[in-house]
Amino acid sequence: MTNKQHWMVSFVRVAAVLFGLMACLTVLVYTPFYSKFILFLLNRFVPVEVNTVAARSQQMAALSEHDDLEPGSDLWVARQAYLKVMQDAARRQDAASLNLIQARYDLLESEIKRNQEHENSLQPDQQIEKVLRHRKHELREELQADDTRLASEIANLDMPDNLQLMDKYIHFLKTYPVDTSASEVVNQQMYSELQQVSSSPQTSADSADIKRNDASQPSAIVVLGGGLTLDKNRKDIVVNNYTKLRLETTLALEKRNHLPIVLSGVEAPYMQTWLKAHGLSAKLLENRSMNTCENSRFSSLLLQKKGGAPKVMLITDQYHMPRTRRLFAMNGITTIPVNAPMPTRLTSWKPSVQNYDHSRRANYELLASIRDVVFGVSDCREVP
């Protein structure tokens, strides 16, 4: 009887201690200190080192003068093929092949220009075939009427003729034997500049007069969607409070920096509607991504295809920022963090339900960051 009573007393004591700890943890979660502590851990331990091979390919794109090529032209398709091969090399961490790819691309570009000069010298009756072959160029004005559709066409090369030509160019860029001695000097200079950029202090968010091809300065403002909701009429879809606050931050930031805006996520068309209603329009819409990994991957691909962006100003909330910066870094892009506010504000010290919103967000990002760092990301598509 004594042993049984002793066992029951021990059980009650342990249960009381556990109950007390759970009560303390619950109170802590509703204070502002819990989310601040998690945020400290995220900023302290989530790595944001840039993948140097991917960054080098981004910089090589940014230092080019080919971001204004006509979509659908042979030079434009060759450019997309070049970027795809460069991205594949970056994903394999194959830095040695970058010079070789660059040298092949230089040869391919020269050959295309030579063929175009020859076609331009033909008599009018000999140009009929050329006109028919480039009939797809007439789609450009139609596509420009819809920014979302244009971004999708450019990002995915949906035109059948382009796909066939791109396969041909990719084969050339992967197999043609060339001497890389000439391109190594140029690319080594690029790599040296990249190393200087990665070791320099972060640029202030208040900087202005940005030079597009200066890889040490941000090239764009990237805004991540935070979700959608129904309007007050319960019919129309609009941006939710998380996304709205990020867009409000974008308005203020664009006034100081005058950089092109990239909207990322399936929310992008609705984000564009909100921006236009406030007198601003995004340059690019990446509207295929369904999660943070795809946000970073698809945005980096689209930026690279439009000329490259070794550094961008990134807008999301403070809890989401460390994991997002890491994923952009893995795609070769350095980020300048610009935190958008949360829909609810933390109290100064006392427990409150509004603090729980921050704690819940912090918990999710903590677990997601641990998953990404330890196990990798498994729900992220390679291409849009």
Results as ranks from 00 to 15, higher is better:
Leu284Cys: 05
Leu327Asn: 09
Val238Asp: 04
Trp349Asp: 04
Phe298Ser: 10
Ala252Met: 09
Arg92Ile: 10
Ile315Phe: 02
Leu28Asn: 02
Ala340Thr: 00
Leu228Arg: 04
Thr52Phe: 11
Val312Glu: 03
Leu280Asp: 09
Ala54Val: 08
Asp125Gly: 05
Ser200Trp: 13
Leu25Gln: 11
Glu153Ile: 02
Thr180Trp: 00
Tyr191Cys: 00
Leu228Ile: 01
Glu286Ser: 01
Val85Asp: 05
Gln123Leu: 13
Met321Ser: 04
Leu28Val: 01
Asp158Gly: 09
Gln202Asn: 15
Val374Ile: 14
Ala268Cys: 01
Lys350Leu: 13
Lys306Tyr: 11
Ser57Tyr: 08
Met271Cys: 04
Phe328Met: 13
Thr203Ile: 15
Val77His: 02
Asp179Lys: 00
Leu83Gln: 14
Ser192Arg: 13
Ile333Ser: 05
Asn257Cys: 10
Ser289Tyr: 02
Ser10Asn: 11
Met321Gln: 05
Val131Asn: 14
Glu193Gln: 15
Glu365Leu: 06
Val14Pro: 00
Ile336His: 05
Leu327Phe: 13
Ser199Phe: 12
Gly307Asn: 04
Lys244Leu: 14
Leu98Phe: 00
Val185Lys: 00
Asp214Pro: 09
Gln189Val: 01
Ala309Phe: 08
Tyr30Val: 00
Glu138Trp: 12
Asn156Gly: 07
Arg345Cys: 02
Asn156Pro: 01
Tyr30Trp: 10
Tyr34Cys: 02
Gln102Glu: 11
Gly72Asn: 00
Ala268Arg: 01
Ser64Lys: 05
Asn162Gly: 12
Leu108Lys: 01
Met190Trp: 13
Pro160Thr: 05
Gly307Lys: 07
Val46Ile: 13
Val178Tyr: 02
Ile261Val: 12
Arg381Asn: 10
Val12Gln: 08
Gly226Cys: 01
Ser359His: 02
Glu267Ile: 02
Ser152Ala: 12
Asp231Pro: 03
Glu365Pro: 07
Leu251Gln: 11
Glu70Gly: 00
Leu259Arg: 03
Asn99Pro: 00
Asn99Asp: 04
Ile261Trp: 06
Pro322Gln: 07
Met330Glu: 15
Met60Asp: 08
Thr316Met: 08
Leu139Lys: 03
Asp161Phe: 11
Ser10Trp: 13
Phe45Val: 14
Phe40Glu: 11
Lys244His: 10
Ser378Lys: 15
Ser200Ala: 15
Asn3Asp: 12
Met60Phe: 11
Asn43Phe: 11
Gly279Val: 11
Val178Lys: 00
Ser264Asn: 01
Ser378Asp: 14
Ile128Lys: 13
Ser296Pro: 04
Ser200Thr: 14
Glu117Phe: 10
Glu65Leu: 10
Met159Val: 13
Lys84Asp: 14
Arg133Tyr: 13
Ile333Cys: 05
Gly332Thr: 06
Leu107Val: 09
Arg212Val: 10
Gln272Trp: 01
Asp209Cys: 12
Asn331Pro: 04
Pro337Tyr: 10
Glu129Gly: 14
Val77Ser: 07
Glu109Gly: 08
Ser64Asn: 06
Asp125Ile: 09
Asn363Tyr: 04
Arg140Asp: 07
Ser219Lys: 14
Ser300Ala: 15
Leu327Glu: 12
Ala252Cys: 09
Val29Ser: 11
Leu143Gly: 00
Glu117Gly: 06
Leu284Glu: 02
Arg345Glu: 12
Ala78Arg: 04
Val131Pro: 00
Glu382Gly: 07
Ser299Asn: 03
Tyr270Ser: 07
Arg288Ala: 08
Thr26Val: 07
